[in-house]
Amino acid sequence: MYEAAMPADPPSIPAIHGPPALAVEELSHSFGKRVALDHVSFAVPPGGFTMLLGLNGAGKTTLFSLITRLYSNRTGAIRIFGFDLRRQPTRALERIGVVFQQPTLDLDLTVRQNLRYHGGLHGMAPSDCEARAREELARIGLAERADDKVRALSGGQRRRVEIARALLHRPNLLLLDEPTVGLDTESRRQILGHVRALCREQGLAVLWATHLLDEARDEDSVVILHQGRLRASGSVRAVCAESGSATLPIAFAASTTGERRP
């Protein structure tokens, strides 16, 4: 189980009336002739937990690549706490933490070395990095594994280390791309619970992409993406009501049937 470690300094909870943690406006992107995203707009409120739902190929990964500036959007805008990703990439990127779909830890390095590398990439001084690593590792219950090689950790533990790593530089927005893929039920439950707790207790805004509908709860906001288009967004209740469905899976099925118009 996770230890109830308290952070050394109070979390920075963004003002409720400030700009959204993430604002995606009229975002389109194509690879050659293939349209991956088609005029997508939605927002993630500060401190809110938003589920991005979509089947494989819906455009979730392209959306994540654009939000993390692997490559830039040509049309539309992405704003992180009001900072336009194209115009002020530094201000925008320092506010986000990311857990990618593919595992990206160095297996041959220790947990601590991996965290230090990431801290350095964000310009953190080694002492600050060390303190934050201790804090975050304690939070995920892996403090005593800091000097173990990542290779020795289980899949679930590696994921938790990746979450700790993403939070090292104190971002206000956490992005997770299918973080529970390939994990057993217990690890899935733990990781989801951990991130929900972060959102609740730290005021962290979260965008959680998944195709596993059972990960969504009634109080979540959801964004449904299908074939590069936004099919629905809002609270689970609103999305269900809009499509006249009793449950989210039914609403999801209703909004993801039907092919894209040519």
Partner: peptide, 17 residues
Amino acid sequence: MGSMRTLLVSPLPRWYL
């Protein structure tokens, strides 16, 4: 493998990375 993404998500300018 995706570890390039970890590097490129750093807020520092890409040429510098």
